[in-house]
């Protein structure tokens, strides 16, 4: 692979289209498999009944919301350090999809909280608050980027915000350990056996990969729009 060849927007433009197509196909197929497992294979939960089936979108969406932020901040950091044009475009292309998954995590969390905790929302709960702050960080990034007319300056200013905001990610992740919260601890971790049935875990992981593929496809479609709008696609 000639990495630096692809670091230029013109040469990346057609590659982004190919990646978007394949990841889009993979996302659709994986979602069909994941939802089939989630609704027809995974058994009813002994304590929560059918309400737990929200897990198949809630947990993957929450993972994506944090993961996409880290990826966005990494691109922003590369752009700030090396002043490469494509990096800022990538960060800007990821932000709306990250915000989308953050909102989905909050929305499905609220709808899951009502039947299990007895409430849609609790102001001041550390897990809920830190995830809400994540949504505001995405919105802040997008608003700041949109407010500055020169795209390179917008990339740098919003990129700085993205890099600083990354401190919120470990706060979200560890909030269930550091403070008292209604939210349960991690159900899946690398250091211990998963605390759920195998079919439930499989459905959840398949949906996570599906959301991953979708995010890549959406970011690639958006970065193509950005490249074209900035007039960098002319030579392709």
């Amino acid at each position: 692979m000639r990495w630096f060849w692809y670091a230029s927007p013109q040469t990346f433009f057609p590659l982004a289209g190919t990646i978007a197509r394949w990841c889009g196909v993979a996302a659709v197929l994986l979602m069909i498999v994941g939802l089939t497992i989630g609704f027809f294979v995974a058994p009813t939960d002994a304590q929560q009944g059918e309400a737990y089936r929200i897990i198949f979108i809630h947990v993957p969406a929450a993972w994506m919301s944090m993961f996409l932020y880290v990826v966005m901040a990494c691109w922003a950091a590369v752009g700030l350090a090396l002043n490469t044009r494509l990096s800022g475009m990538m960060a800007a292309a990821i932000a709306p999809t990250g915000a989308l998954f953050t909102f989905i995590a909050l929305w499905t969390g609220a709808l899951w909280g009502r039947p299990t905790w007895g409430t849609y929302w609790v102001w001041g709960d550390p897990r809920l608050m830190s995830e809400l702050i994540l949504l505001f960080l995405y919105f802040g990034f997008m608003a700041l980027h949109a407010a500055i007319e020169d795209p390179r300056r917008a990339d740098r200013a919003a990129g700085l915000l993205a890099v600083v905001g990354v401190v919120n990610i470990p706060i979200i992740y560890y909030s269930v350990q550091w403070w008292n919260t209604l939210h349960q601890g991690a159900s899946v971790s690398l250091t211990s056996a998963p605390k759920m049935a195998a079919t439930m875990l499989t459905g959840m992981l398949v949906m996570a990969v599906a959301f991953w593929m979708y995010s890549i496809a959406a970011a690639m479609l958006r970065v193509r729009c950005i490249i074209r709008e900035r007039g960098d696609a002319s030579r392709s």
Partner: peptide, 13 residues
């Protein structure tokens, strides 16, 4: 009995 919560989540998503 959890139709609103489950379908409300999936529908909006």
């Amino acid at each position: 009995g959890y139709a609103w919560y489950v379908w409300g989540s999936y529908g909006v998503t």
